[in-house]
Simulated assay, not measured.
Amino acid sequence: MSSQPQRFEILLVPQHVEGKEGAELVESAIRSAVVEATGQYGASGYPRYVGGGLEADIDPETRTVEALLVDGAELDYGLSARVVEAGG
């Protein structure tokens, strides 16, 4: 389990920014949060990460968000979650 990343940054971006990467993606984010591994697995079967009001099951290999709660609610329509390396 130590090979799994212990933290990620999740960017919540409007769906129309598909294809953007790097600094352009970060600038398009309407919210971001660094999430830390809890050591538990979510209902999706992937590791659970929490922080900054976000709770996510993330596939650490593909960096795909498999499940996400934002302040305890599902992600609003028109938004998508992107996973990037946590800074610092």
Score class of each variant (00 low, 15 high):
Ser2Phe: 15
Gln4Phe: 06
Gln4Ser: 10
Gln4Tyr: 09
Pro5Tyr: 08
Pro5Thr: 11
Gln6Val: 14
Gln6Arg: 15
Gln6Gly: 15
Arg7Tyr: 08
Arg7Ser: 15
Arg7Ile: 03
Arg7His: 12
Phe8His: 06
Phe8Ile: 07
Phe8Glu: 08
Glu9Asp: 10
Leu11Val: 00
Leu12Tyr: 13
Pro14Thr: 11
Pro14His: 08
Pro14Leu: 12
Pro14Lys: 09
Gln15Leu: 06
His16Cys: 02
His16Gly: 04
His16Phe: 14
Val17Gln: 08
Val17Phe: 14
Glu18Leu: 07
Lys20His: 04
Glu21Trp: 01
Gly22Asp: 00
Gly22Met: 05
Gly22Pro: 00
Gly22Leu: 01
Ala23Glu: 12
Glu24Phe: 01
Leu25Asp: 07
Leu25Arg: 09
Val26Ser: 02
Ala29Ile: 09
Ile30Gly: 13
Ile30Leu: 09
Arg31Gln: 14
Ser32Asn: 14
Ser32Met: 09
Ala33Thr: 06
Val34Ala: 12
Val34Tyr: 11
Val34Asp: 11
Val35Gln: 03
Glu36Tyr: 14
Glu36Ser: 13
Glu36Asn: 12
Glu36His: 13
Ala37Cys: 01
Ala37Arg: 11
Thr38Asn: 07
Thr38Phe: 10
Gly39Glu: 14
Gln40Asn: 15
Gln40Ile: 02
Tyr41Asp: 02
Tyr41Thr: 01
Gly42Val: 04
Gly42Thr: 08
Gly42Pro: 01
Ala43Ser: 11
Ala43Val: 09
Ala43Arg: 09
Ser44Asp: 03
Tyr46Phe: 13
Pro47Gln: 13
Arg48Tyr: 04
Arg48His: 07
Tyr49Leu: 10
Gly51Ala: 10
Gly51Cys: 13
Gly51Glu: 11
Gly52Met: 10
Gly53Gln: 09
Gly53Asp: 07
Glu55Tyr: 00
Glu55Trp: 00
Asp57Phe: 01
Ile58Met: 00
Ile58Asn: 02
Pro60Trp: 10
Pro60Val: 11
Glu61Met: 03
Glu61Asp: 07
Thr62His: 00
Thr62Glu: 04
Thr62Ala: 05
Arg63Asp: 09
Arg63Glu: 15
Arg63Gln: 15
Val65Gln: 03
Ala67Ser: 14
Ala67Arg: 06
Leu68Trp: 09
Leu68Arg: 05
Leu69Ile: 01
Val70Tyr: 04
Asp71Ser: 08
Asp71Met: 03
Gly72Asp: 08
Ala73Ile: 02
Leu75Glu: 08
Tyr77Cys: 04
Gly78Met: 04
Gly78Arg: 03
Leu79Gln: 10
Ser80Ile: 14
Ser80Phe: 05
Ala81Val: 03
Ala81Cys: 05
Arg82Thr: 07
Val83Ala: 01
Val84Leu: 12
Glu85His: 06
Gly88Pro: 12
Gly88Val: 14
